[in-house]
């Protein structure tokens, strides 16, 4: 057993089995609860990542402006962009690092669900290697009952409800984070991403065990909720027919947004940012993102 299996995968598998025992021997509930708990524990990191992405998104008009100015001079462009990021306290790594830290846990949960489902004799035999000898409770629990609602968690959803849910929730989540842009090329790329990922996952759900799809749906819904509380409706605001400033969520200003720097360049796009920052400082943390 390698380090990954020993330190990360094995504990998650055993915890999943124990959680299942205390949730009425229901693996479906165990998957949902464990996903919520793990995502909850990871919330501070998720929040940081979302906030960093949001700030990066807010800088886009300025970056575009810089591209217009220095697009041909790559060195100057990089220098100006670096200075802009420095001033705003934004780094590329700030967006990715929290996600990279969380990824092993997500992957462990994902792999654990696959292993615990153990639909074939080979897979069940393989699962026996991961069970903790001192935890006598896990041994009689396996194989876990795979029935949950209308689903057999070990096989694909024949009613096709889960593929739709996976694709739908992923689209909603992607839509929330997809920035509005005036650049047609970027808009096309954004639309591509928005459609391709949900379609890919919905397609995979057609053949993957429902237990995994249940994890995806739960995880997507949690992401949507977290994103709502951290960054607002984002790209969904227009979809619901209201401006982002209209929502009546608590308007506690975020310390992260307070840190937004004063803009150096005075132009039409940057002015929006300045206006946004001022609005934030007056108490509306969502004011800037929707100002078009």
């Amino acid at each position: 057993m390698d380090i990954w299996e020993l330190v990360i995968l094995r504990p998650v598998i055993n915890v999943l089995i124990v959680v299942s025992k205390y949730l009425f021997n229901n693996l479906g509930l165990a998957i949902i609860v464990l996903t919520i708990v793990i995502r909850g524990v990871m919330y501070p990191l998720t929040k940081k990542q979302l906030q960093a992405s949001k700030r990066m998104q807010e800088l886009q008009p300025k970056i575009q402006e810089l591209q217009k100015k220095y697009g041909k001079d790559r060195q100057r462009m990089a220098k100006e962009q670096g200075a802009l990021f420095k001033e705003a306290g934004v780094t590329n790594i700030g967006c990715i690092l929290p996600m990279l830290i969380q990824m092993p846990i997500w992957i462990a949960l994902y792999q654990s669900i696959i292993r615990v489902l153990a639909t074939t004799p080979e897979a069940l035999l393989n699962l026996s290697r991961y069970l903790y000898s001192p935890w006598s409770v896990v041994f009689p629990m396996v194989p876990l009952k795979s029935q949950f609602l209308w689903l057999d968690l070990g096989t694909a959803d024949k009613l096709l409800v889960l593929p739709v849910l996976v694709g739908g929730t992923m689209w909603l989540q992607q839509k929330m984070v997809t920035p509005k842009t005036v650049n047609p090329q970027q808009q096309t790329q954004g639309q591509m991403m928005l459609v391709m990922m949900p379609l890919l996952f919905a397609f995979m759900t057609l053949s993957f065990p429902s237990g995994l799809a249940l994890y995806w749906v739960t995880s997507n819904i949690i992401s949507i909720v977290m994103q709502y509380f951290v960054t607002g409706w984002g790209g969904l605001a227009g979809l619901f027919g209201k401006k982002k400033t209209d929502d009546n969520r608590p308007s506690k200003p975020s310390s992260e947004y307070k840190k937004l720097p004063p803009t150096r360049e005075i132009d039409s796009t940057a002015r929006n940012i300045v206006t946004g920052s001022q609005k934030i400082n007056k108490g509306s943390r969502y004011g800037n993102s929707g100002s078009k």
Binding site: S53, M56, Q57, Q60, I63, Q64, Q67, Q81, N92, C95, I96, M99, I107, Y110, Q111, I114, R115, P179, N183, Q185, Q186, Q189, G190, M193, M197, F208, L212
Partner: peptide, 24 residues
């Protein structure tokens, strides 16, 4: 292509390439 998309594409690429590992 702006930084945001580059990051997203890198994440997507990493994700797709690591699918065999992720799914075990």
């Amino acid at each position: 292509m702006n930084v945001k998309y580059k990051i997203l594409l890198v994440i997507l690429a990493i994700f797709l390439l690591s699918m065999p590992i992720i799914s075990g």
